[in-house]
Design a protein around this nucleic acid. Sequence first.
DNA 1: CATGTAAGTGCAACTAATCGCATTTACAAC
DNA 2: GTTGTAAATGCGATTAGTTGCACTTACATG
Lengths: 140, 140
Amino acid sequence: MSCETETAVVLRHAGQKITPQRMLILSTLRHAGEHVTAPIVLEAVRRLYPYVDASTVYRTLGSAAELGLVSETDMGAGDTQFEWIGRDRHHHLICRSCGGVSSLDNSYLDSLATALYDEQGFQADLGHFAIFGVCQNCRV
Amino acid sequence: MSCETETAVVLRHAGQKITPQRMLILSTLRHAGEHVTAPIVLEAVRRLYPYVDASTVYRTLGSAAELGLVSETDMGAGDTQFEWIGRDRHHHLICRSCGGVSSLDNSYLDSLATALYDEQGFQADLGHFAIFGVCQNCRV
DNA sequence: CATGTAAGTGCAACTAATCGCATTTACAAC
DNA sequence: GTTGTAAATGCGATTAGTTGCACTTACATG
């Protein structure tokens, strides 16, 4: 099954409709590969389909984030970055000093999620997680 | 030592100047008690000192967040909430379904911070942390 | 207390993001 | 196919937040 079809299945399963705008926005994000901002997605989408509105992009990215298809990360500098996730969940370590972003495997947060569920009854959605701090290089 | 003085000490220790605007903004936030947005802080500050600019509020809250005096939490609905922290670090569990916010003790994240430091050399700043998910009541 | 300077502020212009509402459209049921 | 309807879109208006720059001010030093 192609990745387009797979995305469509996830959307439909969540009760969402398959619109050209939506597929185009998600496809753009998936093939962007790295972190991109909403305005960049908008610009790229408009090159193919000029009359897409900014609000549609924000709404699409927001709902896709809730479905776990994309991650939505506030990088701290006024720009929210989006990234395609697919099945491969991971998290981000963001250095306050150099601004570098590194990925973090899911396993680090599994025990936290388990503890929250057992002790608080809170089913944590750890799909998008940004941890700020200082990386090894910048600690000097 | 009064809380005003204590705040001033933290600011000065970080190489920041003690300005009337800054003290007013932080004082407002401290006595607000709960989560408040930047526009609400701005409005409250302007009642006492009308010519404070929005950018000053954002800059002050941002730098105070880096110092760990306040937490800065994206609640997911387009509004970033600020909260006074002082010495009492804690985190937030935010329910996607009912929007409820509950506090979480620091201890849950200590082991995560230790693991990140030992295995990745990353010194995590866990001062402001928002965990999204579904709370016990909403899971049905 | 006078002074040098680095940090902070206000202003204006701008980008980012949200929201309500009228219109359109995907798609399920017949 | 036709049709009903709930969801999605586009538009306009508005709020939230950022940035560059000229001016001001806190405060350290002598």
